[in-house]
Amino acid sequence: MANWEHFHHEADIGVRGRGSSPAAAFEGAALALTAVITDPAGIRSETEVEITCEAPSLDVLLVDWLNGLIYEMTTRSMLFGGFAVQIDELRLTGKAMGEPVDRERHQPAVEPKGATFTELRVERDTEGQWVAQCVVDV
């Protein structure tokens, strides 16, 4: 089961996911990204969007995954509250479940502009859990 949190950055905001695998940690980071905008629990899973990306390393793959989500959110005017990620070598196939932005109900606070390489890490912590994190520009 993936979980997420935000971490401090002076001007912007850090997103962090944790899980038993890199894929689970990526799902958590995606939830943290959504939580920058609105409460993920308030998003209905009406539509599924597929995102694929490939990168030279696992951490760049995280940046690509989050930027892929930002692109789909802005061009479809959607919010995503559920994610399913598969990582095979350095190729990611992900599904994002969500609905169109409802400004009254979602009260979206801010739109992420892009995932950055700042504080970017995908690694195991001391307890063996995978952590996937970076700062998002808002």
Partner: peptide, 17 residues
């Protein structure tokens, strides 16, 4: 807006790599 964000995203990645 989105255009600038996407240019930044793409070239940042390309230059970093």
């Amino acid at each position: 807006r989105g255009l600038g964000h996407q240019i930044g995203t793409e070239y940042l990645r390309e230059m970093a790599v």
